[in-house]
């Protein structure tokens, strides 16, 4: 092995890198170092410069919240994953020990009053039911809403499949790509400029398309085929709140539409 060949191999050796030092392919080059003073001087100088560059590059730190952002995203993703059935049993409440518990509930003098109160509450609830077609439901946030909330939060402009300021162009693009394309743009969005569109693969094969509109505020119109929609179909338009985003889901023909914007669900404009 001559000096030039040794240099080629020794350039692969990083300062203080045990694996490199012990690499059999470099062994002969290291032997030559011990007998060639000029090669040794060259090697020491290379190592010093490499050490300085390596230290500098490795001092480049990721943003402080990157790790937390990664873990939060993964925990949210896991929370949306189908849950496995468990064998955990639900413990029964402990037996009551007071003397009153010895009497059957219907024997209590308060039973009749409690029953009457319950009947009155049911009647009141039925009467005060909102006459509008839209139901507000937060207790059971559909998985697709949680998924979309996360996707919208992390969406970057370079992720758009197509960017155009005309909704018709984006509708045609989605149709040509054989993904759900909104058959009708809601009234309030019809003449609004668009930013672009993107397709999501949700829940093993369900395609969701999203067109983003911008007119000061940004609105996201998501479209899915009713036939492949994985969640329960709403009988009436439903409003949801997920973090700082409001969502409205409704069925229109053979499509499920979801509209999302920043803000409260109570302030969601009546676009449909």
């Amino acid at each position: 092995m001559n000096r030039e060949e040794a240099k080629q191999l020794l350039e692969l050796c990083r300062p203080d890198h045990t694996v490199d030092r012990q690499d059999p392919a470099l062994a002969e080059a290291f032997v030559l170092l011990e007998t060639d003073a000029e090669l040794k001087a060259w090697f020491d100088q290379q190592q010093a410069v490499d050490a300085r560059i390596s230290d500098s590059i490795n001092s480049l730190e990721a943003p402080a919240d990157l790790k937390a952002s990664i873990l939060a995203g993964m925990h949210l993703h896991q929370a949306n994953a189908p849950s496995e059935p468990t064998d955990a049993s639900i413990p029964f409440p402990k037996e009551a020990t007071s003397s009153n518990s010895q009497r059957a509930w219907w024997q209590s003098p308060w039973a009749g009053i409690a029953a009457l109160f319950a009947i009155m509450m049911v009647a009141f609830t039925i009467q005060s039911k909102d006459s509008s077609a839209t139901q507000v439901a937060d207790a059971d946030l559909p998985p697709v809403i949680q998924y979309l909330s996360q996707e919208i939060s992390t969406l970057k402009s370079w992720q758009f499949d197509k960017k155009d300021n005309n909704a018709g162009t984006l509708q045609a693009f989605l149709a040509s790509a054989q993904v759900p394309s909104p058959n009708r743009i809601p009234n309030g969005l019809e003449n609004m400029p668009t930013i672009g569109c993107i397709t999501f693969d949700y829940n093993e094969g369900t395609k969701l398309s999203m067109i983003c509109f911008k007119d000061g505020e940004v609105y996201h119109l998501i479209t899915a085929d009713k036939a492949t929609y994985p969640d329960t179909l709403p009988e009436e338009p439903q409003l949801y709140q997920c973090g700082d985003k409001a969502f409205k889901i409704w069925v229109e023909g053979e499509q499920v539409k979801i509209l999302s914007t920043h803000g409260k669900k109570e302030d969601m404009p009546e676009f449909i």
């Binding site: 300085r52 500098s56 480049l60 943003p63 402080a64 939060s153 992390t154 969406l155 970057k156 930013i195």
Partner: peptide, 21 residues
């Protein structure tokens, strides 16, 4: 700015890191 935030930009710490990077 409109479609969503991400991890905030970060300022490099040392002059050497600047030069090497």
């Amino acid at each position: 700015e409109v479609v969503g935030g991400s991890v905030e930009p970060h300022i490099r710490r040392t002059m050497d890191a600047n030069l090497a990077v």
